[in-house]
Design a protein around this nucleic acid. Structure first.
Lengths: 190, 190
DNA sequence: TGCATTTGCCTAATACATTTAGGCAAATGG
DNA sequence: CCATTTGCCTAAATGTATTAGGCAAATGCA
């Protein structure tokens, strides 16, 4: 019998594509096995179990997203960089909803530390250099940006802002404006 | 044989409790059947299927959260109201992580319209009355607040802000400060 | 080239979740 | 007090996750 040429990476990539098509939680060991026209049990030579497979998809998505972020902020500063960074998140989630969901799959601390997560944090800080906030305020701002981007994108993809005026794009633009204004005028601690 | 006295509501409540204990996606028809010491098939007289059960848990959580929000903003205005509202979200997610996850379960449009979702939106607008934003800016601000609260709480519960200084409570306080400042000083559209 | 080892996918089997169909007994109500 | 409804049951089909053990293809080394 011919071999299918499975590897953990190919499984994760196929899983990521499948997630974008049918949703991350429909990504099942059996579904991926079907995709490769192989028995489900065969996947267990390459991934430990279902959780391991999902983790690999999550890591893949985090890397992709970090790469896009890096490309977006290169050569930009201030509001330009902020807007580009924000758009990366939103566009990625719209183009790849399954991958974006995967990127939020809970990782255990060790795996998280070895993931592209820290790169994301570093890029947020790089972005904020243009606004010159002193610690600990910069950390608060990092957390705020992460919250807004993640929160907006996740509410939007859950359909929260469809079917109501004004359209989502307009809110997104104004929210980025508002964040820029806030960062330039960060309130002092009481 | 004695009857267990199942109803859709009791199943949903048990499911919500189970979600808080073991996570929303471990809430399964079988697990709830075990809890009532009943066969899984018996639940199908009360809920249509697994998806229906989850939907009912989601609706329950949305109601609870809306009730807490209503209590929090009653008799408060401005930053006081903003902080109280924000704390409701965060505290609910911390006390009831499974219910909070359930509250984000994707509802089909009809179900969403009949849920406590619209109450949440109305309360956000009530909250913003103290800041006197004209439309469409008020809508943008509603979406911003939803994004920040949801995003922060979901990143926090995924462990995003643990194991790093400053602690999460401090960021939360400062972010609420910052949002208040932003709303009082909302930038004009370009 | 030829053989030994490793590797990759297989079959078989178990366990558990979901869901449908059909049955019997308990509750309800005229 | 009987008829009907309702509630939970058993049985069975389907699908997923996972482990164990086997055979054949690929690989590596003499």
């Amino acid at each position: 019998m011919a071999r299918a040429g499975l590897t953990a990476e190919r499984l994760a990539r196929a899983g990521a594509d499948l997630a974008d098509e049918v949703g991350f939680d429909q990504v099942t060991v059996s579904a991926i096995a079907r995709h490769f026209d192989v028995k489900a049990a065969s996947l267990y030579s390459h991934v430990r179990n279902s959780h391991d497979l999902r983790t690999r998809i999550a890591l893949l998505a985090l890397e992709e997203l970090a790469d896009r972020c890096a490309a977006a902020i290169a050569g930009r500063a201030g509001k330009d960089a902020l807007a580009a960074f924000a758009d990366v998140y939103r566009d990625y989630a719209r183009e790849h909803p399954g991958r974006y969901t995967a990127a939020r799959f809970p990782l255990d601390p060790g795996t998280a530390a070895a993931s592209a997560g820290p790169r994301h944090a570093a890029m947020s800080r790089a972005l904020l250099r243009g606004y010159a906030l002193a610690e600990p305020e910069e950390t608060h701002a990092v957390r705020l940006l992460g919250s807004v981007f993640h929160g907006y994108v996740s509410l939007e993809s859950a359909g929260g802002f469809s079917h109501s005026a004004p359209d989502s794009q307009e809110s997104w633009t104004r929210i980025v404006d508002a964040l820029d204004a806030l960062l330039r005028n960060w309130p002092t601690a009481t």
